[in-house]
Simulated scan of single mutants.
Amino acid sequence: MNVGEASKALGVTERRVRALIQQGKLKARKVGRAWQIDDLQLRRAERRPLSEHSRLVLSRALHNRSLTGLTGQDRKRTAKRIAELRASDNPAVLLIDWWGGKHSGPLNFGTNLVEHALAGNSAYVFESLHRTRHEYLRKPEDLADIVSSERLVQGFTQAELADKAQVSLADLKMIERAIRLPLPSPSRRILRVLNIQPTALPNPAAA
């Protein structure tokens, strides 16, 4: 297939396809003055694969769509890797590298993305990581988990997120401590900034 066809199949620009060819990540050959792509299977770069523990932690975080249960360096590193996946114009290549070019780990949403990456379904991987999230957040604990996790992934401090959402820092801290607020509007503003659409929120605190 030509560059245009490969661009549509991978869900990236034609310029990106040419860059992948130049980097040796796509198998292609010159036919006249044009590139002919022989295999859409993305080749690994020179990144070291993640440890089995790091792969397990990352796949669970992708599956849970939060950093629930993670602490310390595991929490920080996993948040950074999720942010890197979202920022990449071809996150499938990152997943291939991080998993060492082969599938491993329990079957969940995270490892399913790896399978699609290995199969060359780059567009699916990209779209899965960028679609608007709809979350059922009736329990204050669930709201706290989603807000604190996404805040870390997106690189906000509490003060920065409160300012961007135009809510008080005190309200944000209460949300992250799973304390009910008297009104849902601060939660909605914060979730809007984080690109999360709630299908339910905790009942307001009693007056």
Rank of each mutant, 00 (worst) to 15 (best):
G24M: 09
S7N: 07
E160M: 08
D89A: 09
L56Y: 05
R188A: 04
S88G: 07
S59M: 03
N195I: 07
A28W: 02
A165M: 06
L113P: 07
Q36G: 04
S7A: 15
D145C: 12
D74H: 05
A178H: 00
R65G: 10
L107V: 14
R55Q: 05
R43H: 07
L118I: 05
E84H: 04
E115K: 10
T132A: 09
L67Q: 08
S104H: 14
V57K: 00
G155Q: 06
A165D: 05
L26G: 01
S187F: 03
R47H: 10
S149Q: 04
P91T: 13
V31T: 10
R15W: 05
W98Y: 00
I82E: 00
L172M: 04
R65Q: 15
V12L: 02
R44C: 12
T132F: 10
F126K: 11
G11D: 07
V17G: 01
T132Q: 13
L58F: 04
R65M: 06
K30H: 09
Q23R: 12
R55P: 01
L152N: 03
S128M: 12
P106R: 11
V57G: 00
A92Y: 06
L40C: 03
R15G: 10
N112F: 14
R151M: 12
N195A: 14
L172W: 01
G110N: 04
R189V: 06
P49M: 03
R65C: 10
K173F: 03
H53Y: 11
V193L: 00
R60A: 07
A19I: 08
V12F: 03
L20V: 05
D74C: 01
R60Q: 08
W35T: 03
V31I: 15
R188P: 04
L107Q: 07
E150C: 06
G100E: 02
P184F: 02
W35I: 05
H116E: 15
L50C: 08
N90V: 13
G32T: 15
V147G: 00
S88V: 09
S149W: 04
A159I: 11
E84L: 12
P198K: 03
K8G: 14
L183H: 12
Q73C: 07
R77H: 11
R65P: 05
N112T: 11
Q154F: 13
K76T: 12
A205Y: 02
Q154M: 09
R18N: 09
A170V: 09
T68H: 06
N112D: 11
R43P: 08
A19Q: 15
L10D: 01
L152R: 04
E5P: 09
P204D: 05
